[in-house]
Amino acid sequence: NQASVVANQLIPINTALTLVMMRSEVVTPVGIPAEDIPRLVSMQVNRAVPLGTTLMPDMVRGYA
């Protein structure tokens, strides 16, 4: 089972991601792999991401 990136807090739209906003968790469906967390830092979300939501590739500008 692969860990995915999950929002550690509410992340408002257009917010640049920081390490404290994300955690890794084994979830279904699988989202962005946890090993990509360092790559996600400073990328912006293109929608509001509620606490506990799995980050999907289409939620992060420039990721996919």
Score class of each variant (00 low, 15 high):
residue 32 I to S: 00
residue 11 I to V: 11
residue 56 M to I: 07
residue 64 A to R: 10
residue 3 A to W: 05
residue 13 I to H: 13
residue 46 N to C: 07
residue 30 V to F: 10
residue 6 V to P: 00
residue 43 M to P: 00
residue 39 R to S: 09
residue 6 V to A: 03
residue 21 M to S: 06
residue 13 I to Q: 14
residue 4 S to G: 07
residue 1 N to D: 15
residue 11 I to S: 01
residue 45 V to I: 10
residue 31 G to F: 01
residue 25 E to Y: 04
residue 54 T to M: 04
residue 24 S to F: 08
residue 39 R to W: 08
residue 61 R to G: 15
residue 9 Q to K: 08
residue 9 Q to I: 10
residue 25 E to T: 07
residue 18 T to G: 06
residue 35 E to T: 09
residue 48 A to Y: 08
residue 22 M to P: 00
residue 64 A to K: 13
residue 19 L to G: 11
residue 1 N to M: 15
residue 53 T to P: 01
residue 33 P to D: 07
residue 16 A to C: 14
residue 18 T to Q: 11
residue 29 P to A: 05
residue 32 I to G: 00
residue 33 P to E: 04
residue 54 T to G: 03
residue 24 S to R: 05
residue 48 A to I: 14
residue 60 V to H: 01
residue 54 T to W: 02
residue 43 M to S: 06
residue 45 V to D: 01
residue 21 M to D: 06
residue 53 T to L: 14
residue 31 G to H: 01
residue 49 V to D: 01
residue 52 G to W: 07
residue 53 T to V: 14
residue 5 V to A: 12
residue 34 A to R: 04
residue 27 V to P: 01
residue 53 T to E: 14
residue 57 P to L: 04
residue 39 R to A: 09
residue 33 P to W: 13
residue 52 G to Y: 06
residue 64 A to S: 11
residue 21 M to I: 03
residue 29 P to S: 05
residue 56 M to L: 11
residue 48 A to V: 15
residue 61 R to N: 11
residue 63 Y to M: 06
residue 13 I to M: 12
residue 42 S to P: 02
residue 64 A to C: 07
residue 38 P to W: 11
residue 25 E to N: 05
residue 40 L to P: 00
residue 61 R to W: 11
residue 10 L to C: 15
residue 48 A to G: 08
residue 25 E to C: 06
residue 1 N to S: 15
residue 32 I to M: 03
residue 18 T to S: 10
residue 10 L to N: 13
residue 4 S to K: 01
residue 41 V to C: 04
residue 14 N to M: 09
residue 34 A to L: 04
residue 8 N to F: 05
residue 15 T to F: 06
residue 13 I to N: 14
residue 21 M to V: 05
residue 62 G to T: 03
residue 18 T to Y: 03
residue 37 I to Y: 03
residue 58 D to L: 14
residue 41 V to R: 07
residue 12 P to L: 11
residue 44 Q to L: 10
residue 8 N to Q: 09
residue 54 T to N: 02
residue 11 I to W: 01
residue 58 D to F: 08
residue 31 G to Y: 02
residue 35 E to G: 05
residue 13 I to C: 09
residue 59 M to V: 05
residue 49 V to C: 04
residue 47 R to E: 14
residue 41 V to W: 03
residue 11 I to C: 03
residue 58 D to A: 12
residue 43 M to I: 05
residue 17 L to F: 02
residue 33 P to T: 13
residue 6 V to H: 02
residue 53 T to G: 05
residue 36 D to S: 11
residue 3 A to G: 13
residue 16 A to F: 14
residue 49 V to R: 03
residue 6 V to K: 04
residue 58 D to S: 11
residue 32 I to T: 02
residue 27 V to M: 13
residue 42 S to R: 06
residue 37 I to R: 07
residue 24 S to M: 09
residue 1 N to Y: 14
residue 46 N to T: 12
residue 12 P to K: 10
residue 46 N to P: 03
residue 52 G to A: 10
residue 47 R to A: 14
residue 33 P to C: 06
residue 49 V to G: 01
residue 44 Q to K: 08
residue 35 E to C: 07
residue 51 L to A: 11
residue 24 S to H: 10
residue 34 A to P: 09
residue 25 E to P: 00
residue 13 I to P: 10
residue 59 M to K: 02
residue 39 R to D: 03
residue 14 N to G: 10
residue 35 E to V: 08
residue 46 N to W: 04
residue 10 L to R: 08
residue 18 T to K: 06
residue 56 M to V: 13
residue 39 R to V: 07
residue 6 V to T: 13
residue 19 L to Q: 06
residue 23 R to Q: 09
residue 61 R to I: 13
residue 51 L to K: 12
residue 17 L to V: 04
residue 32 I to F: 03
residue 50 P to G: 12
residue 29 P to M: 07
residue 52 G to I: 02
residue 19 L to W: 09
residue 63 Y to H: 05
residue 47 R to P: 02
residue 11 I to R: 01
residue 28 T to L: 05
residue 30 V to R: 03
residue 29 P to Y: 03
residue 18 T to I: 05
residue 44 Q to A: 10
residue 37 I to E: 03
residue 40 L to E: 00
residue 10 L to I: 10
residue 34 A to K: 05
residue 10 L to E: 14
residue 39 R to Q: 12
residue 14 N to T: 04
residue 23 R to H: 09
residue 49 V to L: 14
residue 22 M to E: 02
residue 28 T to P: 02
residue 37 I to N: 00
residue 3 A to T: 08
residue 5 V to E: 00
residue 64 A to F: 03
residue 18 T to A: 12
residue 4 S to C: 07
residue 51 L to C: 03
residue 47 R to F: 07
residue 37 I to P: 00
residue 45 V to H: 00
residue 47 R to M: 14
residue 41 V to L: 11
residue 60 V to I: 11
residue 44 Q to H: 09
residue 22 M to A: 00
residue 39 R to F: 15
residue 21 M to K: 03
residue 12 P to E: 07
residue 51 L to N: 06
